[in-house]
Design a protein around this nucleic acid. Structure first.
Lengths: 254, 254
DNA sequence: GCAAAAGTGTTAGCTATACACCCATGT
DNA sequence: ACATGGGTGTATAGCTAACACTTTTGC
């Protein structure tokens, strides 16, 4: 092996990991799945690493299934974090000690705990179907409202910010909802999803007209009963047309 | 160190690299900078690795400067390639032999040549200012017209496809041109840039109206002379307003 | 019967698009 | 003088955005 190349390889970064921003939607609120580290009050995003025989996308599918039990899920990488100060900006005191306690005294040895590059993936999960399960180094797994997320470990707050921005942009050229809503849903529910993601109010009538114009919804003869008001119709996505719109990246102007 | 964690680390991928799709614009054509491997007819994208003390963005700036001599350049990551078959799909025969010849007999040893994850960055370079320089393992550095790019090593053709798609999308919410055009340029030149990137013809009058409406251009009193026709006015980007539009991600509907 | 929420249609303003004539320049 | 390409304005269609009244339901 050319010695120049060996030197080069040894001087360069060799660590990659994955972090997932898993969005869910429940009771009119957009939520994110977070993990609490054992014996602490520190929260972080679920994540993991890529096995040698896996692709990065496979690894995310595996991680998501481990944390939510869901297999069919929308997922997409939104940014890869390659900063050299990603661990320095951690908000919590005593992190190093805690990590050494959790992982072993030599955790911060150069051999294992080099700074790394992290691929950020966002996922859209059906809140009602998800069965959340913590990691082996975390003891709680909880959905947090997007507006109430605490200070997280490392650069995970920034990751959520970016994921949300990517999700909003996504909304403008692809339909969203299939993986975030139950199979049957009402137009006001879909609207609330859009409003939550976009962070602004939309006009009821215009929203309905627009959504129907995309021709990806199927109006069902049933209605949702139980509310103290007029029963709204139920809708369902026409998966075939939905997937086509997804593929075509039709412009959705909301 | 917890033995479970050591096992986990050993079973996971640890290689990251960077590949750059450097766009230039010259004579009405969008071009990409490619490198030819020593003693072969194989072309690939310029790339490199991240030094331990660098951020990924720093590494790209360094790589770009090495290849083009340019320092002020627009750059942005567009996708991170994490497939587990990225080297398998190489088009050329005899690649392994050539790599061993170039890098040493043990190049394919597990220790160095594991499959890796690659961060794809796109860059917009001023064609006229760039002084291109090959790598230490390449002997030629050439701008290729986007429509005439040959079959490249590894998954680099796919990378260019994706970069171009990202560039087109970019066009719809951020201004483009500052880094691709010389300081002063004419409206038809700007239009040709847009047409080349979008791959379609635009109406001269509507294009001009639209561009001026964004209020990022400064009309200069000078004209470009030398053509066998009416001299067009020169324009310049108002850098401050341009940067603001860049920041705000105003919707540009071309 | 009343409060809360959902169903529905029309209009105005704006933006995107299509289009034509005149002007400057080099040959 | 003529061929080539550039400068400019207007009219139309289509889309977005604003807006009000009626209906259903549970309490």
């Amino acid at each position: 092996m050319d010695p120049r190349f060996i030197t080069y390889l040894e001087k360069t970064l060799k660590e990659v990991s994955i972090d997932c921003v898993i969005f869910g939607f429940h009771e009119g609120e957009l939520k994110v799945l977070l993990l609490k580290w054992k014996g602490t009050e520190w929260w972080s995003l679920p994540g993991g690493r890529i096995y040698l025989e896996e692709s990065a996308d496979d690894a995310v599918v595996r991680i998501l299934q481990e944390r939510t039990g869901l297999k069919e899920i929308f997922l997409q990488q939104f940014y890869t974090f390659g900063g050299n100060d990603r661990y320095k900006n951690t908000p919590s005191q005593g992190l190093r000690e805690k990590l050494e306690q959790l992982f072993g005294d030599d955790f911060y040895d150069e051999k294992y705990m080099k700074r790394n590059v992290s691929m950020g993936y966002m996922a859209l999960a059906d809140f009602e179907q998800a069965v959340t399960t913590p990691d082996w180094y975390t003891d709680e797994c909880k959905w947090w409202e997007i507006s109430a997320i605490p200070e997280l470990l490392f650069d995970h707050n920034e990751m959520i910010e970016r994921a949300l921005k990517a999700l909003r942009r996504q909304l403008s050229y692809q339909p969203i909802g299939y993986n975030l809503l139950p199979e049957k849903f009402t137009m006001p529910e879909l609207q609330r999803l859009y409003e939550t993601i976009l962070g602004k109010q939309l006009d009821r009538r215009n929203f309905q007209k627009l959504m129907l114009s995309y021709d990806i919804l199927e109006k069902l003869p049933e209605k949702r009963t139980g509310g103290a008001f007029k029963s709204p119709f139920l809708y369902r996505f026409d998966k075939e047309k939905y997937d086509k719109a997804m593929q075509d990246e039709i412009l959705f102007s909301v």
